[in-house]
Design a protein around this nucleic acid. Sequence first.
DNA 1: CGCCTTCATCGATAGATGTCTATCCAGCTG
DNA 2: CAGCTGGATAGACATCTATCGATGAAGGCG
Lengths: 126, 126
Amino acid sequence: MQASRATLELIPSAGPGAGLDACSIPLVGEPVSEATAAGLAQVFKALGDPVRIRLLSLIGAHQGGEVCVCDLTTAFDLTQPTISHHLKVLRSAGIIDSERRGTWVYYRLVPAALDRVAAVLSRPPS
Amino acid sequence: MQASRATLELIPSAGPGAGLDACSIPLVGEPVSEATAAGLAQVFKALGDPVRIRLLSLIGAHQGGEVCVCDLTTAFDLTQPTISHHLKVLRSAGIIDSERRGTWVYYRLVPAALDRVAAVLSRPPS
DNA sequence: CGCCTTCATCGATAGATGTCTATCCAGCTG
DNA sequence: CAGCTGGATAGACATCTATCGATGAAGGCG
């Protein structure tokens, strides 16, 4: 590195309590910790598939906010285990939730999770 | 090839020249098309890595909104080609932009892209 | 010109991921 | 009980990806 540039300090403080469950610090406001970045990345990774995006859209757009898995599997040209796998990824990320009622399992969105992700992406008013 | 214009169209249904339209394409409002889901998934996939999250955070938090690559490489325990790879992924997704000035290359955020993603995740007021 | 610094690209490789088939579990109904 | 259906799990496999070392391209400097 040439001497005419001042090196800046940018190792973020590895403070405790880092994670997605922490308060939603804007992404562009200040450097996030490694743990926070890992938590955010997991959620974004769950969103990083076209099938899962469409699954979320189908669930969110459905009247009542709940969709039976049987209705989701028929909406794709994929096998039932594949859809089940994608639903599991979304559920592991905390984006959706499921409930069994009798024979069928219903999935619904977790609005708080989506809100939190949206808040992270929003830049602070400056 | 710096600051290549070969970035993808973030939301295909937005049309060319639409720019940063504040009107959100709802993810939870109505089912999205396959093409829209694919475009969104690519952006989310770009965000689905802890290193890239931290890169975005470092760029966005830096004074002036620009960061030299040399400062980004020193912030991670990774090699320079790896950082360059991650920057390319973010740039291909339209999330960041680069500009060469003399010896150094500076990266900055593309706020419109982040705003659009945040808008997609925001649910319509019920 | 030659040399150095900065950054991008190439090629290889270990690990992650999406998809399938086969199978198992839970719940309903004869 | 047995049998059927909706959904999850297991295992296999092809593809993708994150990372590295090596190299190339662009620009500054003596």
